[in-house]
Nucleic acid binder design. Structure first.
Length: 795
RNA sequence: GCCUCGGUGGCGGAAUUGGUAGACGCGCUGGACUCAAAAUCCAGUAUUCGCAAGGAUGUGAGAGUUCGAGUCUCUCCCGAGGCACCA
């Protein structure tokens, strides 16, 4: 037998599999379907590092396992190729984003192919393909028609470095998630999607998903539901009111002042006769120029300006209370205005202390006089409500002042415009007569035009604005002169529905064929990074729910089960990054050790969702395992089957199946190593037993298995074979090791028949010399027997 | 500050969910083979006392429940991730 030459073997079978098109998926109603999906990558310029394929290998293992268990499996791959990273790469390397993207896709695909992932490449998609983004634009138009899209002039998050507006989900600690630049607030016209209309459903439907609890929790926190009341405060001597949201209407009697966000529209209302107008305007300006970080971390010292000459009236007790503007109140949460109850809110307490405002306790339970008491309790200083408990008082007081109980969410509407080139053009037309009109659906896709210069302008318009003959168009409604919207969509648009496109990748007449959708939807198993919990996974759930509402899909959640992948860190423990020069390229590993070893190692490194450091030294373990398999195979087989080997084999078939289902690949591989160790020790195995070993090994290292499979005389592809069954009879032990404890400590182990009775076990244990020694002649107080496991003697 | 997870040999990690802690792999030590090395094979490898048989200790720290705790409960320490002036 020849040496184990991975390069020869792997290349040979990769070609055969490709020629036979073994990975092709078709609708086949005879079988149960299984749709397993990876989060598709951004094809960046630097190519894959060894961390990327970890999730892909895992889904590949499951996919192969499911195929061998008679499932009709859909397992596709594609490219999330629009968006800033691709564009920035293109800018830096002075090529057109399209050219750069195509190159990067080619590189990524070549790298992935070396790993022999069983993707049906005939279903490959790219979000930048006009045939794809036609339907991204189509969905947007449907949202527009349903009133889910609106134009806003409110200040939004602006990244001065990327020169574009961003959604809340694109920020990280007040800075741009992509480049780390502190975010500014900027007023530019924006298209915004009312994702908040779906907040309650996004929250409630989490309950029906088989996702890891911590991911659901991240989404719950992000959506941030809070129950409270909406209450109106009148302004003294004016016909004006201030609307307020509070979670503590029970503390209304303690509201001794009010605070408006500096951007609050009421501040600019001319009816208000603000005496210190200059001071107010100065504060507003200051607040506007502050970055998000300055506003939230500035030593937490609160600032504000009183609106002189204006008073509000507390609706509970008629008290006249002052009004402030302060940037600790956020313009875009609740109503942008609060009633301040310094006695029972820490922020209001701090502000009241600084500006010497009155503090009135209205809830009993105060522990110290240096801080607000934020708990509940019986009311005081609250007129007729004195003595009532907080929970009841919330409803009663709200009712009394004509407010209403309501719910508020932290989730913000989705700022959807990007002032960049490399994205889907937003298919809207501005007409002076008709207002905003969508591009007629039969004109979709609205192609991204060629442009001389795709550098961002920084003006709030995208580079598309410079193309006169594209921008200038006619109104589809009245035929008059009109201008196209020049902003593009965010990166998240395409990825919000791509899972559907794989089902029906070439459809040009509908977003998806209904029968195909019904057959494949939803995605049964979705695998990807946890960093998408409050970004892509929120948007995709929203987008999919919208498509459900308009009848385009039959199920209201896109991803039934979700599993996150743990990162692979570099050997030095840091993140793999060009910056640290610690990136390991899978191509090098595969050339040197083989794709099979690479696949095995990534699955063996540790628990799938844990982040583990790469170790080329440890990689040798799986490699040795494959070499031992190869050598053992070369020695030939016995005719008689060895019952000891059979037992381990059947245990292994059982465990590997269970572990694949539970995503515990590391222990599945460990068990196969145990089998290998047993084989070498006993030096015997029948060819039939070897076949079954190869079958369960095949999802992990398909090339070497396929080679050995063919050497056994089979002409079939291993992927098309049946997963073996284990024989439960062969796994059970006739004998077990009975553990004998005295006072909780193991003092002896005795080999006994597995079905030993309690009585026999007790007498056997007591007969042991070692045990007698520990009993020291004392009479056992109590003897505990656990079937098949142990005897515990208490003295 | 709040919400999630975590903390087990020199290293990555196992542990049937309360029942022999350290499976499996890496590394290391000794031996075989070799002129030698690599590779391979065999044996060993938590700590500690002991020549050994054997004993004691041991899953971040401390308490508790239990015949029995890595696993359950409480308090605390440390690490990772998320949220963060959200009224």
């Amino acid at each position: 037998m020849e040496r184990y030459e991975h390069q020869k073997i792997e290349q040979k079978w990769r070609e055969k599999w490709t020629d036979a098109n073994v990975y092709k998926t078709t609708e086949d109603s005879g079988k149960e379907k299984f749709y397993i999906l990876d989060m598709f990558p951004y094809p960046s310029g630097v190519g894959l590092h060894v961390g990327h394929p970890k999730g892909y290998i895992a889904t590949d293992v499951i996919s192969r396992y499911k195929k061998m268990n008679n499932f009709n499996v859909l397992h596709p791959m594609g490219w999330d190729a629009f968006g800033l990273p691709a564009e920035q790469y293109a800018l830096k390397n002075k090529v057109h984003p399209k050219v750069a993207t195509d190159q990067n896709i080619a590189t990524f695909k070549k790298q992935l192919e070396k790993i022999s992932l069983n993707y049906d490449w005939e279903r490959e998609i790219s979000t930048t393909d006009p045939a794809f983004y036609k339907w991204t634009q189509w969905a947007f138009i449907q949202m527009f028609k349903k009133g889910l899209v609106f134009q806003s002039n409110e200040p939004i998050n602006w990244c001065p470095s990327c020169k574009t507006g961003l959604a809340n989900e694109d920020l990280e600690n007040g800075a741009c998630e992509r480049c780390g630049t502190p975010i500014e607030k900027k007023k530019i016209p924006q298209w915004v999607i009312k994702i908040t209309d779906y907040a309650d459903r996004l929250l409630a439907d989490l309950d029906k998903l088989e996702w890891q609890d911590h991911i659901k929790e991240l989404q719950r926190n992000w959506i941030g539901r809070s129950e409270g009341a909406r209450i109106q405060f009148k302004i003294k001597n004016e016909e004006l009111k201030i609307d307020v949201f509070t979670t503590r209407p029970d503390t209304l009697f303690g509201a001794t002042y009010m605070v408006l966000a500096p951007e609050h529209e009421l501040v600019n209302n001319e009816k208000l006769k603000i005496k210190n107008w200059d001071e107010v305007v100065a504060y507003q300006k200051e607040a506007q120029t502050k970055t998000e970080i300055e506003r939230t971390t500035e030593g937490r010292e609160k600032t504000g300006v009183k609106l002189e000459g204006v008073m509000a009236i507390n609706p509970a007790n008629g008290a006249e209370i002052p009004i402030y503007i302060a940037d600790y109140v956020l313009a875009d949460y609740g109503t942008g205005a609060i009633m301040a109850v310094p006695a029972h809110d820490e922020r209001d307490w701090e502000f009241a202390k600084k500006y010497d405002l009155s503090i009135i306790d209205v809830i009993s339970g105060r522990i110290d006089s240096d801080s607000a008491y934020t708990g509940g309790g019986a009311l005081l200083n609250s007129g007729e409500f004195n003595g009532m408990e907080s929970e009841e008082a919330k409803r009663m007081i709200t009712e009394k002042v004509g407010g209403e109980m309501t719910v508020n969410y932290k989730l913000r509407d989705w700022v959807f415009s990007r002032q960049r080139y490399w994205g889907e053009p937003i298919p809207l037309i501005h007409c002076a007569k008709c207002g905003v009109v969508p591009v007629p659906e039969e004109e979709l896709p609205l192609m991204l035009p060629e442009v001389e210069n795709y550098e961002p302008t920084g003006t709030g318009e995208s580079p598309l604005a410079a193309i006169e003959n594209w921008v200038n168009t006619t109104c589809p409604t009245c035929g008059g002169e009109a201008r196209r919207e020049t902003n593009t969509m965010p990166q998240w648009a395409g990825s919000s529905w791509y899972h559907l496109r794989y089902i029906d990748p070439t459809n040009d007449t509908a977003i998806i064929d209904k029968d195909k959708e019904k057959y494949w939807s939803p995605v049964d198993f979705y695998v990807g990074g946890a960093e998408h919990a409050t970004r892509h996974l929120i948007y995709a759930r929203f987008w999919h729910k919208f498509l459900y509402d308009i009848g385009a899909v039959s199920y209201d959640e896109p991803y039934k089960k979700l599993q996150t992948v743990g990162l692979i860190m570099a050997e030095d423990g840091r993140k793999m990054s060009k910056r640290w020069n610690n990136v390991i390229n899978p191509d090098d590993v595969i050339d040197r050790f083989g794709s099979d070893t690479f696949r095995m190692y990534e699955m063996f490194m540790g628990p799938f969702d844990a982040s583990v450091a790469w170790s080329t030294e440890s990689l040798i373990g799986p490699r040795k395992f494959l070499e031992r398999l190869w050598k053992f195979f070369g020695k030939g087989f016995t005719d008689e089957s060895d019952p000891q080997i059979e037992k381990v084999l059947h245990q292994t078939i059982k465990k590997v199946g269970e572990d694949i289902n539970a995503m515990k690949y590391n222990t599945a591989i460990a068990q196969m190593m145990i089998l290998m160790n047993a084989l070498e020790k006993h030096k015997s195995m029948t060819a039939h037993d070897m076949e079954r070993f190869l079958l369960i090994l095949s999802p992990f290292c398909p090339h070497i298995v396929q080679e050995l499979w063919s050497q056994l005389g089979h002409e079939s592809f291993i992927l098309q074979e049946q997963w073996p069954q284990y024989d439960a009879q062969k796994i059970v032990d006739d004998e077990i090791t009975l553990v004998v404890q005295v006072n909780g400590k193991v003092r002896d182990t005795i080999t006994v028949r597995a079905d030993i009775t309690e009585e026999d076990a007790k007498s056997t244990a007591l007969a042991s010399e070692k045990i007698q020694k520990y009993l020291e002649g004392k009479e056992p107080k109590k003897i505990i027997f656990v079937q098949g496991k142990l005897i515990s003697i208490v003295v």
